[in-house]
């Protein structure tokens, strides 16, 4: 099979065209947010929120309302719960995060098992982009627009918030608002990511592209573009590969993302392992 065939053949199927477009879109959106997650040091928070949205997603299914609403309530709710427990008890923050998100996630599992009807647990856990419905596509589209527009409008404030929230506050910028904006976007994109790679791997979409780009650039805007490019590349190629090898789509996407990270880690011109080794040799001489 030649290369053109490899790319063209899957597109004969309508579901593949949809899958590729949706995963590309999700790749762009999650990657954009991942820049802020990595710079703010919110990887653990991303992990927590993306798992904690689970009961919200199930309840939204049952009530037949947009998943994003349920996810939003439980995503933000989990962080409020974390903040509350941390401030009222002597338990350390990472412990609180660990217990809150697993508690929410477990609640979600129980709910799924009891309301069997139309929900397929494996679709939530591992994604189902090859079988994505039109209403889910519409929902992903809406989430994407909201997220990208918000990030575009608040771009500079969010950069400042991640970099130096002390200064931001001292000049009257509402950092509490920015905190909840970032958190809300995290909950929303968790739903978008859930469609493609599933709830378990969605944190990879929200962290890895940003981390890869962080190694390759010293400017925020470049970092954003590199993250988006690597996110889209991984999503599209991952979907293709999963079609050809008949394997897990989410798995293929995230394996590709991780592979890109490893390449960047080794070969990045300035911050890669090879460059660092070379630099320390030069310094040593």
């Amino acid at each position: 099979m030649d290369l053109v065939q490899w790319f063209a053949a899957p597109l004969q199927n309508e579901f593949m065209v949809k899958a590729i477009l949706v995963s590309a879109l999700v790749g762009v959106v999650c990657s954009a947010l991942s820049c802020y997650m990595t710079l703010k040091g919110w990887a653990l928070m991303g992990d927590a929120v993306s798992h904690a949205v689970m009961p919200g997603v199930v309840i939204a299914y049952v009530l037949n309302i947009p998943l994003a609403i349920g996810a939003f309530v439980f995503g933000v709710g989990s962080v409020i719960a974390i903040g509350f427990i941390k401030s009222k008890t002597r338990v350390k923050e990472d412990t609180v995060i660990g217990l809150v998100f697993t508690g929410f996630f477990a609640l979600g599992l129980v709910l799924v098992s009891k309301v069997k009807s139309s929900i397929d647990l494996t679709h939530i856990l591992f994604g189902n982009v090859l079988g994505i419905s039109d209403s889910d596509i519409m929902q992903t589209l809406i989430i994407s627009v909201i997220t990208l527009v918000t990030l575009a409008i608040l771009r500079k404030d969010l950069i400042l918030f991640c970099f130096d929230s002390t200064h931001a506050r001292s000049i009257g910028i509402n950092t509490v608002f920015l905190y909840y904006v970032l958190l809300s976007l995290l909950s929303l994109t968790a739903v978008a990511g859930l469609q493609t790679v599933g709830i378990i791997l969605v944190v990879a979409m929200l962290v890895t592209p940003g981390a890869t780009a962080y190694l390759l650039s010293d400017r925020f805007d470049h970092m954003m573009l590199i993250a988006m490019a690597s996110g889209v590349f991984s999503s599209v190629m991952g979907t293709y590969i999963s079609y050809h090898i008949d394997g897990s789509t989410g798995g293929c996407i995230v394996v590709l993302q991780t592979a890109l990270f490893i390449v960047a880690m080794i070969f990045a011109p300035k911050h890669g392992l090879l460059a660092r080794a070379k630099n320390s040799r030069t310094v040593g001489e």
Partner: peptide, 8 residues
Amino acid sequence: VDWNFPVS
């Protein structure tokens, strides 16, 4: 300050 932050 996070000196690795990608700002000039």
